[in-house]
């Protein structure tokens, strides 16, 4: 968990300097840091909750019956 926090801090700092050097609009800052925040929460929750549902569970739930029907 500590690793994730450190990792994201590095990412945050790096992107901050990148955006700053390129003189981006404020909107870009919001979007980029919003996405970084969302990624951070997702990464953290995968570590904290071991059985958190992932997109693959969703795929399995939706498509497994279909495939079963096709293949008989």
């Amino acid at each position: 968990m500590i690793l994730i926090i450190i990792g994201f801090l590095i990412i945050f700092g790096y992107e901050w300097t990148y955006l700053k050097s390129k003189k981006r609009k404020k909107r870009t800052y919001w979007i980029v840091f919003g996405i970084i925040g969302a990624s951070f929460i997702y990464c953290l929750s995968t570590v904290l909750f071991e059985h958190m549902p992932s997109p693959s569970d969703m795929i399995q739930f939706l498509f497994e019956p279909i495939q079963q029907k096709i293949l008989g």
Binding site: G7, I11, S56, I59
Partner: peptide, 30 residues
């Protein structure tokens, strides 16, 4: 940040190789 999500997804997808294989076999193609 999205690469971090990708890595998290890769770990979160299945708890073991067996689960992954069965998932790929049963639902992935569809």
């Amino acid at each position: 940040s999205l690469a971090a999500v990708m890595v998290a997804l890769s770990i979160n997808t299945a708890s073991g190789t067996a689960e992954l294989t069965s998932f790929l076999y049963q639902a992935w193609a569809a």
